[in-house]
Design a protein around this nucleic acid. Structure first.
Length: 209
DNA sequence: GAGGAGATCGTCT
DNA sequence: GACGATCTCCTCT
């Protein structure tokens, strides 16, 4: 396995299909951020699919605006939005240029740069690895706002970034991790289309939000 | 551990 | 002018 910063990102074709399939396929992949002080990475353990103009809960439901235009663009681009006056959430666009759709990243299992991510999150991480309980590690990147802060994702910095470019400092890579079982449930925190089973997570993974 | 309220601002009505 | 694809802190148990 090459160093994480040198592994090629997933290609546009991976995202050029139904968001439900992308959301499921993204589980187990690594979300990687390259920074001057090192690599930050987490395994994707929880996602949600947003289907586009037919999905009442999706930002793209009311049509294209300046805010959501990335969702209508080519596949594999980052859609970052600001919510509740405090948090950023990261999505990736799906389907061909001109067709809306995306996948929200909801939780990561920290893999690399754990100390650096804990620091920016304000999480007090014990020196001794055996004292780093799951309950502490979960505070780093379990939840859409938390994982965005851990990786330094902002709208200004990352919105519309091409995650499939070899030059991108934010990318998704496959390290051949095999997901055993996926569970599906309703999406979190929405009112419209609240019953649709469009949330996907790795069964039994403790870092699910 | 559970539940409730406040934070805080860009976006759309 | 209302509200949201959330998180944290505080209180009560």
């Amino acid at each position: 396995m090459k160093p994480l910063g040198r592994v090629a990102p997933l290609k546009p074709d991976f995202y050029n299909r139904d968001p439900r399939r992308v959301a499921r396929a993204l589980l187990g992949k690594l979300l990687v951020r390259k920074t001057p002080s090192g690599i930050l990475a987490g395994r994707i353990v929880e996602t949600e699919a947003y289907l586009g103009e037919d999905d009442a809960a999706a930002h793209s439901a009311a049509g294209k605006t300046a805010r959501n235009s990335v969702l209508f663009g080519p596949p594999g681009h980052a859609y970052v939005y600001f919510i509740y006056g405090t948090h950023y959430c990261l999505n990736v666009s799906c389907l061909p240029d001109g067709v809306a759709g995306g996948v929200l990243f909801r939780a990561l299992e920290p893999v690399a740069g754990i100390e650096q991510m804990a620091k920016v999150r304000g999480v007090d991480l014990p020196e001794e690895p055996e004292l780093r309980k799951i309950s502490i590690l979960k505070k780093i990147s379990s939840g859409p706002g938390r994982m965005s802060e851990a990786l330094g994702v902002t709208r200004l910095r990352d919105n519309d970034k091409n995650l499939t470019s070899p030059r991108s400092d934010l990318r998704i890579v496959d390290d051949d991790y095999r997901v055993r079982r996926v569970t599906v449930s309703p999406r979190i925190g929405i009112v419209k289309a609240a019953k649709d089973l469009l949330r996907y997570f790795i069964a039994g993974n403790p870092f699910v939000s």
